[in-house]
Nucleic acid binder design. Structure first.
Lengths: 295, 295
DNA sequence: TCCATTCTCTGACTTAAGTCAGAGAATATC
DNA sequence: GATATTCTCTGACTTAAGTCAGAGAATGGA
């Protein structure tokens, strides 16, 4: 049973990498090594910071430098310092570079089209649907959730995005300083509490915090998932991970509050075994309060 | 609309090659270059002919030779001449080689497992289902159908498999020499007729023949799809390709006969627009006769 | 202001991967 | 029995890809 499933996945990995390797080969058709082609394509229409490129393509800085030099020699790219921070540099495509980019873009389309072409319309639609599903679920399965210091830049960015989103969604707006004191970093650091960050390929795409409310009771705060990572079942995993942390930190139950505008959050809490309780704080933005006994 | 579908496919290609690259990386973890690791894995438990290995992994013969030499130096592989044809050689794993093979096998399982692990049981099942579907449809889409000489070894092998299968499936057995004279190669070669072979990654997985029955009327024969390639919609594509060929060769209609045991073939012909007609030949194995007007 | 840090570049490497021509043995074909 | 063909191997290459140490400019913080 499990064997059969593993075999399907292994088969998939085998054949699909082979087929998708067709893209690499079509890229090579333009007479440029893959590394250069990928770099050119990644720089894209708007240009990109070298740091960004290095992270995305996982390149050694020396190697990137050399690849760029060769694209520059071909007249496809210019590199200039950022005005804001002149240590950083930014690669931008020239007109010739943009033309090459378009050619690679066309090749990508062609490969995609050639996968659909031999299939009946019905099978083609099934293929696209199945590919979308695989992509979505593989993305979901490669999200890693880990405890991180709440003061890290990524954690701060998540919280900022969270605050910004609440401001947009609450009817009454949201001012994080109003009434509900923001927990300081120590309160969100073990052993007092913790801060979880969910990462997809290194990029932070979600967070959640746990702090001590009173003896034996933890409070869950700052649960947030980036828009591009929604629909992956991530909030449910974050919630479960926070509950695991709460258990490890010795809490017997956890509480949380939420605003009436966040209907999907309420549904999540209910389906995860939370029950509505009386108001336990004076958060002016809270409309519902929940609690769960940890098993 | 089409744009959206292409983007899903491109997205899929991107992320999936990335994720399945995890397998390569895990292979590298055993301190051996990928080429060697893949070769070792491909030799497998029972050993493999070098020619076979070269085709599967698309290796230059010199390169293969060197890779094998290095595996031999590591004591993982022995290479010996085939007794039947002493130009050919066969690579076989030693005990140490088999142990390494098992280690790579475990790594493949582990990668597959790690894709399932973070998902809920429900999502895991959906992932496996979607992967199976993608694999199946990509295989279907990479089958190529082409006119080939009916005397080629691959064509002969297809016909032999076809004859063998009819022998198994007909209640009365099947003797290709009985009553129904087998068309000679010229009759299945343009401009008289043609022979189509369907190939999946170079391997012949199906065939179909067309010959002249009388002026303006062609006859379809020898339609066969290998068991491992069934369920890909291949027979429908073969039939359509034969009809295209018939049009090109100037036929106005095509006929065919079939045995009562081949129920799925009858269903195919009906759904492809064929109508039952009176007996038009004296094939002792035929129970039904069909005809289609070519548009 | 000084010092540590960040960011990019250069030089000097290593290694894997792959190509090509041709030699030599075994076999198939006429 | 001569000749062509098939199959593998060796030698001599090229190229891409990637690593590592360190230099040099710009910036941020004590």
């Amino acid at each position: 049973m499990d064997r059969a499933r593993l075999d399907i996945i292994r088969d998939f990995n085998r054949t699909v990498t082979l087929r998708s390797g067709a893209l690499d080969e079509s890229y090579l058709g333009r007479g440029r090594p893959l590394g250069q082609a990928r770099l050119l394509f990644e720089i894209g229409d708007g240009g990109r910071d070298l740091k960004d490129l290095r992270q995305r393509l996982r390149l050694d800085s020396g190697y990137l430098s050399r690849l760029l030099a060769s694209l520059r020699r071909q007249g496809l790219v210019t590199v200039a310092a950022e005005p804001t921070d002149r240590r950083q540099r930014r690669a931008v495509l020239t007109d010739a570079g943009r033309a090459e980019w378009a050619a690679y873009d066309d090749l990508s389309d062609e490969v995609a089209r050639s996968m659909l072409a031999p299939l009946s319309p019905n099978d083609g639609a099934r293929l696209v649907a199945a590919m979308g599903e695989v992509r979505r679920l593989l993305a979901a399965s490669s999200v890693a959730i880990a405890v991180e210091p709440p003061a890290s830049p990524e954690a701060r960015a998540c919280v900022a995005a969270y605050v910004c989103e609440l401001g947009r969604r609450f009817e009454e707006g949201f001012d994080p300083g109003n009434g509900n004191p923001t927990p300081d970093d120590d309160a969100l650091t073990p052993p007092a509490g913790c801060f979880l960050v969910a990462r997809l390929d290194g990029r932070a795409v979600g967070c959640g915090a746990l702090r001590r409310l009173s003896p034996g009771i933890g409070e869950i705060k700052r649960m947030w998932v980036a828009p591009e990572a929604r629909g992956l079942g991530l909030s449910r995993r974050l919630l479960a991970a926070l509950e695991d942390q709460a258990r490890d930190l010795g809490f017997e139950r956890v509480r949380l509050d939420t605003n009436r505008a966040l209907t999907e959050a309420q549904a999540l809490y209910r389906s995860a075994g939370y029950r509505a309780i009386e108001r336990f704080n004076d958060n002016p933005y809270a409309d519902f309060w929940f609690e769960k006994e940890l098993g």
